[in-house]
């Protein structure tokens, strides 16, 4: 649980308007799920449906969507379940004011950057200079906070709450060291050995191998094997049947393996292990 929440610390990289939107959205979804006995939309179900729309892969191909589905669903359900905890810091920076302040400045950049922004800013070493500036910015003046958002989004979000700056920068670094290798590695491992998680997702409805057909046993064996394959979400494009020849030439099928390799990096909003390590290296340097 702790890891799940800390892996959501990427929320702090969001601009304040995006944070406010995410907060409102997850609070609303939490309201919806409180009627799950009527509407059948439990947290899990809501996360399945809304997750892929909120945590969008950069390349919207099926492999990326399916490949990250388990992680996305997990993150989204935490977002809904823990929304009050995750956004509690906002109490000192009400969403309304930050929204107003940030909107005129940031509207253009963030609509674009939300998806396409490279995670490079994660690797930027934290300049102590930024922290020195922060004490001047008081909570009473949210407009000032919105200004540095364009460049140093992360700090600006944390600044209103971090009264003790020097202390917070230390703890924050610790936080980074503790959380990013573990939690994001967890995501990464999950992904690279994605089959267990995904299989459990997709084997739910596995047709029982006992075929209704009185066919020969070799066929039912083949079916049994086939069932395993077909439960993998990429069954169609991966089919290596000659009859698929012409359609395979279209290229969707061939793309599956290469897309799989690049899938995780395709998520800008999920930190990979490498990125996390790189970030820490940079910070230590």
């Amino acid at each position: 649980m702790c890891n799940d929440v800390s892996s959501l610390k990427c929320l702090t990289w969001l601009a304040s308007d995006n944070t406010a939107m995410t907060h409102l959205g997850s609070r609303f979804l939490n309201d919806v799920q409180s009627y799950s006995n009527v509407n059948k939309m439990s947290i899990q179900n809501l996360a399945t449906v809304f997750g892929p729309n909120i945590l969008r892969p950069k390349a919207e191909d099926p492999e990326s969507i399916i490949g990250g589905a388990a992680d996305v669903q997990h993150l989204m359900s935490e977002l809904i379940r823990e929304h009050s905890l995750l956004f509690s810091r906002e109490n000192c920076n009400p969403p309304e004011t930050s929204l107003q302040a940030a909107l005129p400045i940031q509207r253009h950049s963030h609509l674009v950057e939300w998806v396409h922004e490279p995670p490079a800013h994660l690797r930027e070493p934290l300049l102590s200079k930024d922290h020195m500036v922060l004490p001047d910015q008081t909570v009473a003046c949210p407009h000032k906070h919105s200004l540095p958002l364009n460049t140093k989004r992360r700090e600006s979000f944390q600044s209103p709450c971090d009264k003790n700056i020097t202390h917070s920068s230390e703890t924050e670094q610790q936080f980074q060291e503790n959380s990013s290798p573990t939690s994001s590695a967890l995501i990464y491992d999950n992904y690279s050995q994605n089959s267990p998680a995904q299989e459990s997702l997709h084997t739910r409805h596995v047709p029982t191998p006992s075929t209704p057909l009185p066919a020969c046993t070799s066929l039912s064996k083949e079916l049994e094997a086939g069932v395993q394959i077909c439960m993998q979400s990429r069954s169609w494009p991966d089919m290596e049947e000659p009859s698929w020849g012409p359609e395979k030439a279209l290229g969707e099928s061939g793309g599956s393996s290469e897309a799989q390799d690049s899938t995780l990096s395709v998520y800008d909003n999920i930190v990979t292990k490498e990125q996390g390590e790189q970030y820490i290296e940079d910070r230590e340097a």
Binding site: I65, H202, H205, P207, A215, G226, C230, S233, S235
Partner: peptide, 11 residues
């Protein structure tokens, strides 16, 4: 249990 995508096979 909302589906994003599921494949089934039947002979």
């Amino acid at each position: 249990d909302p589906t994003i995508e599921d494949s089934y096979r039947k002979n």
